[in-house]
Design a protein around this nucleic acid. Structure first.
Lengths: 126, 126
DNA sequence: ATTGACTTTTGCCATTTGGCGAATTATAAT
DNA sequence: ATTATAATTCGCCAAATGGCAAAAGTCAAT
């Protein structure tokens, strides 16, 4: 019940509080003033590219605006906690250590070979 | 010099590894299969809205894809990679995430294969 | 070979984004 | 009041996004 306030209004509020004109913000962010204006009054919705550009000039953390825009779900940075989420597992430290001594191209090649082997295995399994 | 590998390739690699078809991912993410296909082969660049939708189904942390897409600047503590220590050589994050989805035995097998290949290469070089 | 069920790609189109330049509207300063 | 000047908004356009349906591939089982 707190936010009947749009992203555009937030941006405008922040800009005038800085204080900056559309022109000045435009110069710093490399986004046309007209576009910024339309965004502020809700006629356009800012893309991620634009959000990224205007974040710093407006004094926002990068991910802050993303969250406000609904691109990121709320609770940035919060608790980097170990995510039991995906990866049925984590990377074995030994494996990590060995691989990280190889050049990037080799690392990628390893993945390529792995996926080949997997597809071969799959075709044989059936 | 870390990534001459594109976002699309990463996404496809991840999808195939899950494993999912374009259709299935489409169903889970509510993005048309054709669009997903074009993204994977680099014909379209995914918007933030799309990235957000496909992140979870693919097992990505939300901000991870944003970072890969260049929407967010790198740094989220992220990457399941093993934590302390071997900052010496760096393991490509992409490689890390693909490998960490394999069971430990497979991870070790990969290292085994790698060392075989290296010794073969060495013997041929001489 | 041929059928049939999937998976991926292509063609086409509606919608959005975002820029540029021309109005329009403040804001001052004479 | 009347300019001059800055700030914002409007009109139009090019480019990109993303969906849908139809066309290619794939691949197994006849």
């Amino acid at each position: 019940m707190s936010a009947e306030i749009s992203l555009g209004e937030i941006i405008r509020q922040q800009r005038v509080t800085m204080p900056l004109t559309l022109q000045e913000l435009s110069d710093q962010a490399c986004v046309s003033p007209s576009h910024l204006g339309r965004i502020e009054r809700g006629e356009r919705f800012p893309s991620a590219r634009i959000l990224r550009k205007i974040a710093k000039p407006l004094g926002f953390e990068e991910d802050e605006l993303f969250t406000l825009a609904g691109y990121l779900s709320p609770q940035p940075g919060s608790i980097s906690e170990a995510q039991p989420g995906y990866s049925g597992g984590c990377l074995d430290p030994y494996v990590s250590r060995v691989l990280s001594q190889e050049p990037i191209e080799v690392q990628h090649a390893v993945i390529g070979i792995l996926s080949m082997l997997k597809s071969i295995a799959k075709s044989m399994a059936k």
